[in-house]
Design a protein around this nucleic acid. Structure first.
Lengths: 259, 259
DNA sequence: TGGGAGTAGTGACAAATATCAATTATATTT
DNA sequence: AAATATAATTGATATTTGTCACTACTCCCA
């Protein structure tokens, strides 16, 4: 192990990887930010030292300072409830933002915990806001990402309000699969970083129900599951089982006819 | 009936009521927008002719042009599903915005329908965005409102994921009560503009269950209900029944200790 | 001013999922 | 590497809520 001093001299947080060299650049900053604009943004972004499994990025009730972008690993958002339970409100994979729900009240309504070792970019919000006033493209990007989050929460509402246990798990797995695929990973084979408990909680189901559904899916030949390791054999069928989701179907939205 | 020509000369949409004279000013635009800034904002806001019960502001799949603020009446947002059903994603009361979920994809993922005659301000988004680039306070306000919506969707997620039928209806009624109260109406007596069907749909319950819960609440002396007319007798108990909600408890968030 | 469509309320029953209990597998700790 | 805690699975049973059937009420609107 190198002497304490050396690691202090070159702390991890200083070993910056430029946004432009980040594999998530297209996901995190899809709008055309270039050259000088990007450099100025990078000046305010802080790369935090990797967070270890179980570490918190923030707790419910903490005052709001920054939003965060996941670079690697995965983060769970949850609201602790009075009874000592929690409600999981989301999982954040690389390229995704968290903390947007804290802007209004300048306080984090939920806690964020690493499900595995993860690295995260911290974007101090005040500085980001100041910079955005000069670079409107940043505002536009933030607003688009927030709109997306609202949209996705609506999808989750449909899931919780209308879908059966089977549809919920299918929709969940399909969502995870799509998100990994978009980031260049396999859509059909991945490790779930969250426990069955977390999945059940997020989907509004008991753990046991989640387990049973995994078993059923495996018996049906839809996928193979061994603990956290998932291999999907029939992605199309999985998507079908997940049921209707609002969004583009080909180039049109579905069911305009019914509305 | 006056001749066609006359009504064309002075269309309702021209009879503008200035934002500064609107009773919802403090809710809709709580940030300090004043003088010239406000005038410029008003120039782009269009007051639409009142929409009648059943009329749509937009349909799922429509391309996105504007966000809307409710001035009076109430609007229901819902996602039509393939099976011809719908999932109600929200109710919008005076002073509340809708359409924020459409910004990302420049398409409305859901439909918006008036539950009763309503009047609505239309804010053309492109113009709003251009103006926001000059008046950062507008951007800040929009971002705050979007953050609030994300936060509220999380609360709804807890409701759908964790609460019993009884807790759901109690939470719903308490929410409606609070929102009316904030707008200067009675917190304990109001008319529900939405049907039992819509309520059940929104809460993830069957209509019959909603009916039964209303009956139970009435039998318990919690409230009186006659169709859409509600009189709450014990607001505190209603709140208690609604169960935990993330948010400020006094000046602190609850359950930091557990997290 | 009916008459019909939609809306609301109630009971009986069914189904889905939660809960409880027990077992096994897997991590984590010492 | 054993010991202990945690997580996952499975079966049996309980409970909640949904579904179906029927009745009553209301509000349009022709």
């Amino acid at each position: 192990m190198p002497p304490e001093k050396e690691s202090t001299v070159v702390p991890l947080s200083k070993r910056k990887i430029a946004c432009k060299d980040c594999s998530l650049f297209q996901i995190c900053l899809p709008v055309g930010i270039t050259g000088e604009e990007l450099e100025r943004l990078e000046q305010i972004i802080q790369r935090r030292r990797p967070v270890k499994r179980g570490d918190h990025l923030y707790h419910g009730g903490d005052s709001f300072r920054s939003i965060y972008a996941v670079r690697s690993g995965s983060i769970k958002s949850y609201v602790p409830t009075e009874s000592g339970n929690e409600q999981v409100t989301g999982f954040h994979l690389p390229g995704e933002l968290l903390g947007l729900d804290a802007i209004v009240h300048k306080t984090h309504p939920c806690s964020a915990k690493a499900l595995e070792t993860a690295s995260v970019c911290e974007i101090p919000y005040e500085e980001f806001e100041l910079l955005s006033n000069e670079l409107p493209v940043l505002h536009r990007q933030l607003i688009a990402l927030m709109s997306k989050e609202i949209f996705e929460e609506e999808i989750h509402t449909i899931l919780l309000g209308k879908k059966s246990a089977e549809e919920r798990l299918a929709a969940y797995l399909y969502s995870i699969s799509s998100r990994y695929y978009r980031r260049g990973f396999s859509a059909t084979e991945f490790y779930l970083s969250m426990s069955r408990n977390d999945i059940g909680n997020y989907l509004g189901l008991a753990v046991e129900t989640v387990s049973r559904m995994f078993t059923r899916f495996q018996d049906d030949g839809l996928l193979s599951v061994e603990r956290k390791h998932i291999v999907i054999h029939d992605l199309i069928r999985l998507k079908t089982m997940a049921g209707a989701v609002p969004g583009k179907c080909g180039e049109r939205f579905f069911c305009l006819k019914n509305s």
